[in-house]
Design a protein around this nucleic acid. Structure first.
Lengths: 178, 178
DNA sequence: ATTTTACGTCAGCCATGTTGACATATATGG
DNA sequence: CCATATATGTCAACATGGCTGACGTAAAAT
């Protein structure tokens, strides 16, 4: 359509820029998950196990329903991997105190060790990328990714605090919403 | 955990920062692919079809082996989705001129229409994110993601040129590495 | 006492990745 | 010309990790 010869074409550049971003996400995400996948395979686990281990580590004593919300999968899907992780001693379950229907999940020491192994890998990759790209770039990275995300998920990232709290919020100042 | 009261703890902040980045990638990527997945489902297609349509659109007359390299899957996996796309008239194959063993792939008009539909969705999402995060952030986004990627994949993104050329590069200056 | 909630489980389906083996057409190099 | 290498396709079997639907049980809430 537009004549290319007429110097810098902003529409073309924009199109190219946006496609590069799309591909950047594809390749970066794939490489980002490849190494942990390799490690997991040695345990007979897959990426789904990684996610469960990660988020249980991130939100100690998380309940099944909360984990389901974060993962965005069905309980049947979760059940398969969670069952294995419990059976093989990576995750421990215990009933909630106030509500004994809830099964609170925690990593065992074995689970925490695997979590560290897996996360260390990704953390190192991100740390290297942050270092090489610079502090300003990190802000930009966050800014763009947060806006690529659905709005409904952004709350986790709006303040450091909100994310650290997570579903197991134990703020000493408020009574908590249990 | 580390004592929070002892002022800004750089190690803790770093850990938190890195974990946020990991989660950012997870949630952003998931949301980024969710809408196209919905559209694809209406055609009886999945994400794998999307990738094929995308990269064939991006690299017109790409050969099967080159597509395989980009996608990083086996020919058997590709065969399944590519076969469907050809059968259903989204992609056209023709033998190469110089090398008639090669099957060059192109989108049909029908295929191009679907490609536009799918990519428009993701492009809009990225465009919005870019707009809201600002030009500087875009640079940071690129800088970090490029460094998260394996080095072997970075060539596509080092210059606009390298990416536009793609795998069908015929550089006249070097003899190649084969 | 009934209903709702949180969780589990069985059964089957689908998409998409894998490996291994084998076939066919074409190109390339003695 | 023949032998080998390359590009592609295909069949078969298997694994992972989503999904839906149906049903069960314990505990909380009304």
């Amino acid at each position: 359509m537009a004549d290319v010869k007429s110097g810098p074409n902003p529409l073309f550049l924009r199109e190219e820029e946006l496609r590069q971003a799309i591909e950047l996400l594809f390749f970066a995400y794939r490489d980002f998950t490849a190494e942990p996948d390799q490690i997991l395979a040695q345990y007979g686990f897959g990426r789904a196990h990684h996610r469960v281990i990660y988020f249980v580590g991130r939100h100690p004593s998380i309940a099944v329903s909360e984990l389901l919300q974060i993962l965005g999968i069905t309980k049947q899907s979760l059940s398969r991997v969670l069952g294995q992780l419990v059976t093989e001693g990576f995750i421990r379950q215990r009933p909630g105190q106030r509500d004994r229907r809830r099964r609170l999940l925690d990593l065992t020491e074995k689970g925490a060790a695997l979590e560290r192994k897996l996360t260390e890998n990704q953390r190192n990759r991100v740390a290297r990328a942050f270092r090489e790209a610079g502090a300003e770039a990190v802000e930009g990275f966050r800014g763009v990714l947060v806006n690529i995300m659905d709005e409904s998920n952004r709350a986790r990232f709006t303040s450091q605090d909100a994310q650290a709290r997570g579903p197991d919020a134990r703020s000493k100042s408020s009574a908590g919403r249990g």
